[in-house]
Design a binder for these strands. Structure first.
Ligand code: SF4
Ligand code: SF4
Lengths: 153, 153
DNA sequence: CCTATTTTGGATAAAAGAGTCTCAATAATG
DNA sequence: CATTATTGAGACTCTTTTATCCAAAATAGG
């Protein structure tokens, strides 16, 4: 898998947050229910995002979690780096240690291109962009049910 | 990681085989020594490749393993599919089950592009191509030491 | 026929990833 | 102040991946 499960959950939750009113703290329990992710597990992941400064949290009643910046200023890569670290973008196809341009493997040139494509995709895509698309076309963030259903009531 | 470790080992071993004389059975022990991969682990992986018809094996003295086809007719994707299965090419960025074009998530369009790029790279690259490049530029397949060193003595 | 070499296959162990549970800390509300 | 809602943090369990080990089957060569 390209992204770890933690990372995918982090992305889905971030999209959820980006789709809500800015400034509003959302309880993690709400998200875990709507997104069908284990509450405790999601909590852990969001703690990482909080530690990395992507989210901020507030304890107690009416507490929860929210984005520190606008969704339009958060790229997917920010979340991927916060959760999975930079390996994806530095690591190699053949997984040789200390790899790079100076001491490449035969796959390096081709892999570097592909890796750049992945990097670019993650870097150029913002949360808001996906939220807009998701809303416009009612695309799903969970196994079943479209985008809208997540934000009802 | 994009590819599992098993898969990477399988690729490296396949490159090794493609670089040797066609028709010659190479003992797995040789490869595991040269490539610095655990013998037993590599054995398991190559058994999979044998089961998938990418390699054929021969027991006993002078036995070993060799490619069934010419290296120029084996694409990287063949090995990836044999070891990691098709998930990489069918699975989604957001990992939602039963995903596809009919019921996409907001990332689908972008991810599908990236995934196609990966697919194309793996599909268009043959073992021989990489072996040629590796020989020509003495590129490494192990932590240290170039291509040549693997095939000495 | 015997021995050495090599793959096959299964059992087992260690490490990493995914997920669960419990309790403490913080804050709102009556 | 007591209660309740919520995040924070750590221990713990389960699963998958990675790795090790061992005995059995096949084969070449003497
Ligand atoms: S040379 Fe490039 S592709 Fe190969 S292992 Fe190193 S970084 Fe990866
Ligand atoms: S819609 Fe596409 S990108 Fe999204 S989870 Fe499904 S296959 Fe993956």
């Amino acid at each position: 898998m390209l992204l770890s499960k933690s990372c995918v959950y982090g992305l889905r939750a971030s999209l959820y947050l980006a789709a809500r009113e800015q400034g509003e703290f959302i309880p993690i329990r709400n998200m875990s229910d709507k997104l069908e992710i284990s509450f405790h597990f999601l909590t852990k992941i969001l703690q990482q995002l909080t530690a990395e400064g992507i989210l901020e949290s507030f304890k107690g009643p009416n507490g929860g979690v929210r984005l520190t910046r606008e969704g339009s200023e958060i790229q997917l890569i920010d979340i991927v780096l916060a959760i999975d670290g930079p390996q994806l973008l530095t690591e190699c196809a053949l997984g040789l240690p200390g790899c790079g341009v100076k001491n490449p493997c035969p796959l390096h040139d081709k892999w570097a291109e592909t890796r750049d494509a992945i990097h670019e995709m993650l870097e150029k895509t913002t949360l808001t962009e996906l939220v807009r698309k998701g809303k416009a076309e009612n695309l799903r963030l969970t196994t079943d049910g479209g985008f809208d259903i997540l934000f009802e009531n």
